[in-house]
Amino acid sequence: MNERIIRLPTLMERTQLSRSTLYDKMNPKSKRYDASFPRPIKLSISAVGWFEQDIIDWLNSKKS
Rank of each mutant, 00 (worst) to 15 (best):
D54I: 00
Y23E: 03
I5E: 01
L22V: 15
P9I: 02
K31L: 09
L59F: 00
T10V: 13
P40I: 00
N60E: 14
L17C: 11
Y33T: 07
L43D: 01
T15M: 08
I56C: 04
R7G: 00
S64E: 14
F51N: 10
K62C: 05
F37H: 06
M26C: 02
R14I: 13
T21D: 03
T15W: 06
L11Y: 10
E52F: 03
R7Y: 11
R4T: 13
E52R: 07
I5S: 02
L22Y: 05
A35L: 09
L22M: 12
L59P: 00
Y23P: 09
L43R: 06
K62N: 07
S46W: 04
T10F: 01
L17W: 04
D54F: 00
T15V: 09
N2I: 11
D34M: 11
S44A: 12
P28K: 08
R39Y: 08
R4H: 12
W58N: 01
I45D: 10
K63Q: 15
S18L: 11
D34L: 04
P28A: 09
I55R: 07
K25P: 02
M1F: 05
S46K: 14
L17D: 00
R32C: 06
S44L: 01
I41L: 14
M26L: 15
R32N: 14
R4G: 01
S18I: 08
E3M: 10
S20L: 09
F51C: 00
R32D: 13
N2L: 10
D54R: 02
L22S: 04
R32Q: 12
K31Y: 03
Y33Q: 08
S36H: 09
I5R: 10
S20P: 03
S64D: 15
R19P: 05
M26V: 01
T10A: 10
D24N: 15
K62S: 03
I41P: 07
S18D: 12
G49R: 04
R32L: 15
W50S: 06
E52Y: 10
Q16N: 15
F37G: 06
